[in-house]
């Protein structure tokens, strides 16, 4: 796993795990790998994984069960909120950039629609080949 060394590593670990939860690779109630195993697979320090886990536990997304390990919450509302938060964050970055270029809201919508259509074609082609 390649990290961006300008961004705190614990934060990037959280992002990786949250992405997996939202994409469904980690399902509600799933057990996370052991701390050291996570550290090895991400090539990071055990302490950094622990810090990321602490924050995810504080945010309610990961549930720690003493002696059993760490689990993804089975509270669907929390996962849904997490998803909303991430969507909003990415939209904000995207919108702010285009807005700074003085592109109108209507044009942004049109461009996005056209872009998605092109992507759809691409995906269809890939699926056929």
């Amino acid at each position: 796993m390649e990290f961006d060394d300008k961004v705190p590593i614990y934060y990037q670990i959280k992002t990786v795990i949250y992405d997996q939860i939202i994409a469904g690779q980690l399902a509600p109630g799933d057990k996370l790998p052991a701390v050291r195993q996570l550290a090895v697979s991400l090539t990071v320090n055990v302490n950094t994984v622990q810090r990321a886990l602490r924050e995810m536990i504080d945010e309610g997304v990961i549930i720690s069960q003493r002696g059993k390990g760490n689990f993804v919450t089975d509270n669907a509302d929390i996962v849904e909120q997490l998803k909303e938060k991430l969507i909003n964050r990415y939209l904000k970055q995207f919108y702010d950039r285009l807005h700074r270029l003085k592109i109108s809201n209507q044009q942004i919508i049109d461009e996005v629609t056209a872009y998605i259509e092109r992507q759809g074609d691409l995906n269809d082609n890939n699926a056929e080949s």
Binding site: D5, V7, P8, R51
Partner: peptide, 12 residues
Amino acid sequence: ADVIREESGQSI
């Protein structure tokens, strides 16, 4: 290390 990244936005 993470304090450096957080405070300066720089890589180590």
